[in-house]
């Protein structure tokens, strides 16, 4: 901090005052025992991995390199994770803001949504999504609600519908998967986002309001960026969980998915264990990448909170005044 550290240290000077400490450190024999045990166990693991024929590494890498497997990983696993998390995070923040609003109807809707989607197991939710088309045999139309009733009253015929989607086309494959996983995720993210928003000191919103910011700006510019510091770590968890939950897409059913594709190769060649290894390697790799991403996100939203001094005390004049 201060620049005037010019005081002299008398410790080195006179013999009757104790000087620098040069003591014997505490020994940790237990640590050495633990290290020895770990080294032996690690050696056994490596030996197992290299010598055990059941691993069949050639087959593992061949299976991982198949076109349908790579396609399943990119589309069914990565793409669905990304899309579902976009739906989940966006929906979750929206639900959290609704839940914290003064409007009892909005707060109630948010509560009911969270209650409903947290109650259903994802596997069953995805299965249900795949069958939802049965509710809309005439398709999903966009137009004036209750148009046939209004027409009836007016004594007219025809409809006020602009376009119609085939429900069996909507509730199928990847789309059904993303809807199901995204809505389920939104319910969990709502709680995470709510905790994040509530963690921000009330004085922050007051200071922003006193500057004349609208309530939307207060939320977007002041509260949410600070809430993110609390929201990001559990969201990283959720993303990793989502990556793994994409293997439930089979319930929809979606077959353009990593584990289904690997399994079908495994059953063709009667090799199940190497397939499990191949899937594990894929998920390990994807999770590692996500963890790196989370590190950078945490660093970004942790600005101004750490004890580190990232870019303090640069000389004045940065404003160009």
């Amino acid at each position: 901090m201060s620049t005037d550290t010019t005081e002299t240290r008398p410790a080195d000077a006179s013999p009757d005052r104790p000087g620098a400490i040069n003591a014997v450190p505490v020994r940790h024999p237990g640590r050495w025992v633990a290290i020895a045990v770990i080294v032996i166990l690690a050696g056994m693991l490596v030996h197992l991995l290299v010598t055990n024929k059941a691993f069949d590494w050639r087959f593992v890498f061949q299976a991982m390199n198949q076109q349908p497997v790579i396609h399943g990983f990119l589309k069914g696993t990565l793409l669905v994770t990304v899309l579902s998390m976009i739906v989940g995070v966006g929906g979750g923040v929206l639900l959290a803001v609704m839940r914290l609003s003064d409007n009892p109807i909005l707060a109630g809707v948010s509560w009911v949504f969270t209650w409903f989607f947290r109650s259903i197991p994802r596997y069953i939710l995805l299965f249900t999504m795949g069958t939802l088309g049965i509710l809309f045999p005439q398709g999903i139309a966009f137009g004036i609600p209750f148009d046939w009733k209004i027409m009836d009253w007016l004594g007219m015929s025809g409809d006020w519908r602009f376009f119609t989607l085939d429900a069996n086309q909507v509730f199928t494959g990847i789309v059904a998967g993303v809807i199901g996983l995204g809505l389920s995720e939104a319910a969990y993210m709502a709680e995470i986002a709510r905790a994040g928003i509530m963690s921000v000191d009330k004085g922050q919103a007051e200071a922003a309001e006193a500057l004349g910011m609208s309530s939307g700006k207060v939320m977007r510019r002041v509260v949410l960026p600070q809430a993110m510091r609390v929201i990001v770590p559990p969201t990283g968890n959720e993303t990793i969980a989502m990556l793994k939950d994409t293997s439930l897409l089979l319930a929809v059913p979606v077959i353009a998915e990593l584990f289904y594709q690997l399994q079908s190769i495994g059953s063709t060649y009667y090799k199940t264990f190497p397939i499990a290894v191949a899937a594990t390697l894929y998920y390990l790799a994807a999770t590692s990448v996500l963890m790196v991403g989370q590190y950078f996100l945490e660093r970004h939203f942790g600005r101004g909170f750490g004890t580190k001094a990232p870019r303090a005390a640069r000389p004045a004049g940065a404003g160009g005044a």
Partner: peptide, 13 residues
């Protein structure tokens, strides 16, 4: 308005 506890935005310089 100036507050007792400053209420600066901690994520901004």
């Amino acid at each position: 308005m100036v507050f007792q506890r400053f209420n600066l935005f901690p994520h901004k310089t």
